[in-house]
Simulated assay, not measured.
Amino acid sequence: MDEITDDSIKNEAHKIIYKSIYSKFYNLLSNKKQFLDECDGLYKDALQKYKPKEEVTPSNDSIANPADKVELPKLEKFRASFYTKEKINQLLKVFEGDKKSSARGRKTRHRKSTP
């Protein structure tokens, strides 16, 4: 990648953009080994986390689908919670008299339909 020189680009805006892009690519290239090592580590962690329970080999005919042997992550069971009647009344009292949230206090206009 060519480094920018003042003679190569005449437009000042283009110089700023090129310098910014150049510095980002330069940082990316200089940290390439670190990025590759990080990717390898993430891949190995994922491989360990989702490896099959038992080794899948072509000679093991009892396995119809190799994915059946992968241990799936555990899902937390959802437990719903509900407001009590008292809590709902308490919540409604907070907004009582608020013009923006009170639909009961508004007068609605009905237009007469013409035939």
Rank of each mutant, 00 (worst) to 15 (best):
S62V: 11
S62P: 08
I63E: 15
I63W: 13
I63T: 10
A64R: 01
A64H: 10
A64I: 08
N65V: 09
N65G: 14
N65W: 12
P66I: 04
P66C: 09
A67T: 00
A67W: 02
A67I: 07
D68V: 07
D68I: 01
D68N: 08
K69M: 13
K69A: 03
K69R: 04
K69Q: 08
K69Y: 05
V70R: 04
V70I: 10
V70A: 04
V70C: 00
V70L: 04
E71S: 08
E71P: 06
E71L: 01
E71Y: 05
E71G: 10
L72I: 00
L72S: 10
L72N: 06
P73T: 06
P73Q: 01
P73D: 05
K74E: 08
K74H: 00
K74D: 04
K74A: 07
L75K: 06
L75D: 11
E76A: 04
E76M: 10
E76G: 09
K77V: 07
K77R: 04
K77Y: 03
K77G: 00
F78I: 05
R79W: 15
R79L: 15
R79T: 14
A80Y: 14
S81N: 08
S81A: 07
Y83S: 03
Y83T: 03
Y83L: 09
T84D: 00
T84S: 03
T84K: 01
T84H: 02
T84N: 05
T84R: 00
K85R: 12
K85H: 11
K85L: 12
K85C: 12
K85F: 14
E86N: 14
E86A: 13
E86L: 13
E86K: 13
K87A: 09
K87F: 12
K87D: 08
K87V: 10
K87C: 05
K87P: 08
I88W: 09
I88Q: 01
I88G: 07
N89D: 14
N89R: 09
N89A: 05
N89G: 03
Q90A: 13
Q90K: 04
Q90M: 01
Q90P: 07
Q90T: 07
L91N: 13
L91D: 15
L91K: 15
L92M: 00
